[in-house]
């Protein structure tokens, strides 16, 4: 990364930290992880929808990244590479969980109960809670795509690397996921807290 030695930027770049880690620096990987851990946690948590499983997935991913750092070829940004490993570990966890019966059947009802509590679906209780519940409705590949693109702000090209698929598939998964979430999230639009508000939908509402 060309920005490593810019004025006022004494800290090393991600790529430099990874290089130092590979060279034997015992601190470098931990520093790299701390830089990105909240976003890595977010992608794991939102993809697997369960804090315990997310922590396990993230642990699998970080151990893997720690050991396989030498394989990083610099073809993408280090963050993209880290996110890819976390998404893979998260989807692996979900596949393993899917092999065990337990979740999913009751999810829809739990979700309905959540959004319609107090008998008033238009009254938003907690946007974040509702969004998390709605994300659970999606098939994992769509969910991972939507989390990476819409929630974490990665571009389609990087998202394709992270998800190990083509840009067209990323777009398609995101589009289907948005359409699927629409009925569950429409009531939240225009009903957000000040600091987290987004532009209200423009246009010709009839």
């Amino acid at each position: 990364m060309p920005d490593a030695s810019g004025p006022g930027r004494p800290e090393p770049s991600d790529a430099e930290l990874l290089r130092r880690h590979v060279a034997g620096d015992t601190e470098a990987f931990g520093e790299l992880f701390r830089r990105h851990r909240d976003r890595l946690w977010a992608v794991a948590l939102r993809t697997v929808c369960d804090p315990e499983e997310a922590a396990d997935a993230l642990q699998d991913a970080m151990v893997s990244a720690f050991r396989r750092a030498g394989d990083f070829r610099g073809e993408s940004a280090v963050t993209t590479w880290l996110h890819r490993i976390v998404v893979n570990a998260s989807l692996d966890r979900l596949r393993r969980r899917a092999a065990r019966p337990a979740l999913s059947a009751g999810d829809e009802q739990a979700f309905e109960a959540l959004v319609t509590q107090d008998g008033d679906p238009t009254r938003s209780t907690d946007t974040r809670l509702d969004v998390n519940a709605a994300l659970r409705m999606l098939p994992p590949p769509q969910r991972a795509a939507l989390v990476v693109v819409d929630m974490l702000g990665f571009g389609v090209a990087d998202a394709a690397i992270i998800l190990g698929t083509s840009p067209g598939t990323v777009k398609s998964r995101c589009a289907r996921a948005r359409a699927r979430l629409l009925p569950y999230l429409a009531h939240l639009q225009g009903n957000r807290s000040a600091s987290e508000s987004v532009q209200p939908a423009q246009g010709n509402d009839s």
Binding site: D38, W41, R128, L146, M151, A186, Q189, R192, V198, G203
Partner: peptide
């Protein structure tokens, strides 16, 4: 517009700090 709103809403959810 509502579909655009879904993306905007998702973008507005803050990244949770790692516990």
């Amino acid at each position: 517009d509502q579909l655009a709103g879904v993306s905007a809403l998702l973008a507005s959810v803050p990244v949770p700090a790692m516990p």
